[in-house]
Structure formats: C-alpha cells, structure tokens
C-alpha cells in the first residue's frame, strides 16, 4: 500500500495506490488522520484510481474520514472509475452522501 498526501488550498488530497484491506487500512487511517488533524484544511479528496483492490475495510475507512470532515465543517469527495470498487461504494450507500467523480482533477474542480 502506497499513500501520497498533498495539501492544496483548503483540501487534503490523498492518493491511494495498491491494495486496501483490513491489514493495510489501519496504517492508512492513522496517516490520513495525523495529516488532517494536524493542519487547518477542512476538505479531503480521496483518489482511489490507483487501487488494485478494495473490500469493505475501505468503506469503513472512507466513512470514518467522512465523519471527520463533517466535524470540521468540510467535505469529502472521491475520485474513482474502477467498476468493482464503485459497486462496493454504491452498495454501502456511501454514494448517497459522498460525491464521486471519475478523475482527480474533476473532483478537485468540483469541491
């Protein structure tokens, strides 16, 4: 699992690369939270386009980060075009509360 984070304006941009499961999600969660809580940004943009695998652990991760952005009066949005991952996001009801764009630049432009 490879994680890349960048702060741009009021947004924390998180790019995830590799396999997101129960084993890898705990470290990802800690790193994102440390960065998000330690800075003044209020939005999170999660780019899932370089994930090669995600199971329901990813839902838990996104849900938890979404709650953190609500607490900071910010927004969380997702960039993803992977069909299998989109099916899981849809199944979980997350897409009713979180906006999804195919590509990162579209997500960044729409936050």
């Amino acid at each position: 699992m490879y994680l890349n984070m960048e702060i741009l304006d009021n947004n924390l941009i998180v790019k995830l690369k590799g396999e997101l499961d129960h084993h890898t999600s705990e470290e990802v969660r800690k790193k994102i939270d440390k960065q998000y809580n330690g800075s003044s940004v209020s939005n999170i943009i999660m780019d899932l386009n370089e994930l090669t695998f995600m199971d329901s652990s990813g839902i838990g991760l996104i849900m938890g980060r979404y709650r953190n952005t609500v607490d900071k009066r910010g927004k969380l949005i997702i960039a993803c075009e992977n069909m299998t991952i989109k099916r899981i996001l849809d199944m979980s009801g997350l897409l009713k509360i979180i906006e999804l764009y195919p590509k990162l630049d579209e997500a960044t432009n729409n936050i």
Binding site: R29, D55, S56, G60, M63, G64, R87, I88, M91, S92
Partner: peptide
Amino acid sequence: NLERSGMGFTVMET
C-alpha cells in the same frame, strides 16, 4: 468502534 461498516456478508452475497 473499529470502523467496520457491516457490509461484509452483503458484499459476499452480491
């Protein structure tokens, strides 16, 4: 509390 979503069985079924 462990950030589980309760979706595991639903994913398997689907």
